[in-house]
């Protein structure tokens, strides 16, 4: 008799823990990202910054080099700068999209895990 009651209470507790976990996964998933560990946030920031600078630097370097070879200064530098800026934006957009996709994947995995348990 007492055993039965204990069993029922245990099952009830298990159910409550499960729903709480699912709710928590949904909540942290919905507001996640920005509240991650600081070092990870810094890594994302540095990554996007470097991505932005690298595109511009490559464009400008190609422009400068081509100008020097062809003697067309400063026109190819200007062209290289503009195209490099475009490449920077393309890089940043691509990085942001990829980070978004990964975050969505992790969020989904967390929710699935909580539901399964």
């Amino acid at each position: 008799m007492v055993d039965d009651q204990l069993d029922k209470r245990l099952k009830d507790l298990g159910k409550r823990v499960k729903t709480a976990q699912a709710k928590r996964a949904e909540r942290t998933g919905a507001s996640g990202g920005g509240r991650g560990k600081p070092a990870e946030g810094m890594a994302v920031g540095v990554r996007i910054t470097v991505e932005m600078i690298a595109g511009l630097a490559v464009g400008v370097c190609i422009g400068l080099y081509a100008d020097k070879q062809l003697g067309t200064a400063p026109w190819l530098l200007i062209l290289g700068f503009l195209l490099g800026a475009g490449a920077s934006f393309a890089n940043v957009l691509r990085t942001a999209r990829e980070l978004d996709a990964r975050q969505a994947r992790e969020r989904q995995a967390a929710i699935d895990r909580a539901r399964d348990e």
């Binding site: 190609i62 490099g84 475009g86 393309a90």
Partner: peptide
Amino acid sequence: PIEIISYLSRPVS
């Protein structure tokens, strides 16, 4: 050109 520069910027970044 933008995509080529973007590709070349990979080893730099």
